[in-house]
Design a protein around this nucleic acid. Structure first.
Lengths: 345, 345
DNA sequence: CAATTTTTGGCAACCGGTTGACAAGGGTGG
DNA sequence: CCACCCTTGTCAACCGGTTGCCAAAAATTG
């Protein structure tokens, strides 16, 4: 076998002798032309049932697997979708990643993951790099500006999660339902003054949520103030505790659960009783939100479903369907746990 | 431009007119042969400094980017590594994913992610599928058997995390240090009987950790019993609470943090005070382990570092270095928080 | 049964790089 | 001045599929 040009053997490879039979090997075995093999294996109905069978058997026998690169080269199709998240350490994205991976692999697509580390520049770079190797791209809570996203979107299908951009398919949780449930519940429990702890300024969602809170409070005749946090983390939540107390609010809704958890820890450390003296409502319902004591009441944002929906839209577009013209909205809902309740003045 | 064979324009593409200049375009612009361009761009020093410069300028001007598929086809190199995790929802893997992604992208490799959903069969399928498109593969806490892993490893470089397999490079936390710290700390706090809550039988790690606990308890002259859990989750932890109480142990070390959290919740719900009446020590130090009240004492397993190390080894192997012959071990350490302490009989 | 249409398979070009073989050009030493 | 060697660019084959075009074969129709 060391002689050059091994005659009948399927094309050899570096070391593993198992892999890599080619359509040429199949063609030889089946006694047809390689192009016929290609058609039999990808174009349904293009060849007669008889030859189809012969070829399939030969492929089976040789343990054939298409070479994705060889296919991608002329067609551009890679059976791959890219997902870019702002921060892999942020549990908010865990569910999105999971939803996307699961849905993608159910439809035979592989997920390629990249992180922007919260930097718009890194994000653009990563997006460009990925874009050349995937069939489509999903941007979860993107940090780059709208124009960059539109530019990417002109190249290949792009779906955005957690942000709304005209002309680009988006999946955006409709925060209003969850927020109004939360505010109504707080009002019913005797609260009259509410504080909203905002997230990072460059997050599109933080504004959206504040709008929702403001509107719901007006409707329920609650006072609402907006407080700023230094960063949307547990630590940020701790730091904002002072402002919360100063604000005089007895109920707080935070931009995300991490802030809520930090805030609750700090308030409890200062001797406040939750929810007897102050109610805290988080946002998202991340993993671990129910680990706290009391467990965190929160507005659940169906992150996993966002991932799923985004992939579904993307794959549909890839199959030639039209993208929905409007942002797809998924519902949020209040999850009542122990951190909110009646005010015991 | 509708006329066929557009003459001078760089090769056109579906719609986006920006992307995809080829080495042929560069060659034409620079007045050299395409192969020279290829060499200038990949083989350092193969062409003269002068032509190198000319070509680089031309590439710059045309905004050239290699076509990864065209490159992968003849060479097999894809600048891509695959990572397979047992369960994307399990926070244990979050840090691994993150470590791998970060380290990979720092060395210009893209991470491709797949999940086995805890099923050995799915895992093998996913592994095979990925293997054909990546340069190397990382298996985090694999569920498939050793032989399958060795088979994969014969095809392309494979690195395993959280399991030790002869002949395959592995990254395995050395649990002994962390465990003995934990046991010593418990002994010093007056505990004499300890229970270990085990994880799933097919997990290599659960046995390893039990060995460590047993040995450390012998050394510190503590009694040690092993209890089985139905599943390594919060729920599984709740269910095992009964057995823990029955065992008479006043200190518990669990296979992972999720079990510890569930166990603590259930015990507290039953009126037990932690750590006054019972001490609980988890394993891994996952995200959220410090959200509980009291915060969870745990043996930290440096998951992120495991991801990083695994990628480093993999990329080194890909560059022709030898893999370490022995399993690479990373240190574990005890993180003392509130859930363990002195026994107040 | 011949004429016509529809299937079906083959040919060959192409996707965009990589690389072994080779020859022209340039430099060195005898 | 010539032989020899090294550097550098070119040629051409190749990686493994896909696809437009054409002709042979089969099926349909009058």
């Amino acid at each position: 076998m060391t002689s050059p040009g091994a005659a009948t053997a399927p094309s050899k490879r570096g070391r593993g002798e198992k892999s890599s039979a080619t359509i040429y090997d199949i063609a030889k075995l089946a006694g047809v032309n390689p192009s016929t093999v290609s058609r039999a294996l990808s174009k349904p109905g293009r060849v007669s049932a008889k030859t189809q069978k012969i070829i399939e058997d030969a492929a089976e026998q040789l343990n054939y697997q298409v070479n994705p690169f060889a296919r991608a080269l002329p067609t551009g199709r890679t059976q791959t979708i890219g997902l870019i998240v702002a921060d892999i350490t942020n549990p908010t994205f865990f569910d999105i990643i999971r939803g996307a991976e699961t849905t993608g692999s159910a439809r035979d697509y592989t997920l390629v993951l990249a992180e922007s580390a919260e930097s718009p520049e890194t994000e653009v770079t990563a997006a460009r790099r990925l874009l050349s190797t995937v069939d489509g791209l999903i941007l979860a809570s993107p940090r780059m500006d709208d124009d960059h996203i539109r530019a990417l979107s002109a190249d290949k299908p792009v779906v955005v999660i957690n942000r709304q951009i005209d002309g680009v398919p988006c999946v955006v949780p409709d925060v209003n339902k969850g927020i109004s449930e939360a505010v109504r519940s707080l009002a019913a429990n005797g609260h009259t003054n509410l504080a909203y702890v905002a997230g990072p300024a460059q997050s599109w969602m933080t504004g959206r949520r504040w709008e929702g809170v403001k509107a719901a409070c007006e409707w329920s005749k609650l006072g609402a103030v907006r407080l700023e946090s230094s960063k949307p983390t547990v630590d940020g939540g701790r730091q904002v505790a002072r402002d919360v107390l100063d604000s005089g609010a007895t109920a707080v809704i935070t931009y995300n659960d991490l802030l809520a958890i930090g805030l609750m820890q700090e308030l409890q450390a200062g001797g406040m009783r939750v929810p007897d003296q102050i109610s805290i409502v988080g946002f998202d319902d991340i993993f671990g939100a129910d680990f706290t004591t009391p467990a965190l009441t929160t507005v659940r944002s169906p992150l996993g479903e966002c991932g799923t929906r985004a992939v579904t839209i993307l794959l549909d577009v890839l199959q030639g369907h039209d993208a929905p013209d409007e942002a797809v909205s998924v519902e949020t809902e209040l999850v009542v746990r122990g951190s909110s309740g009646r005010l015991l003045a």
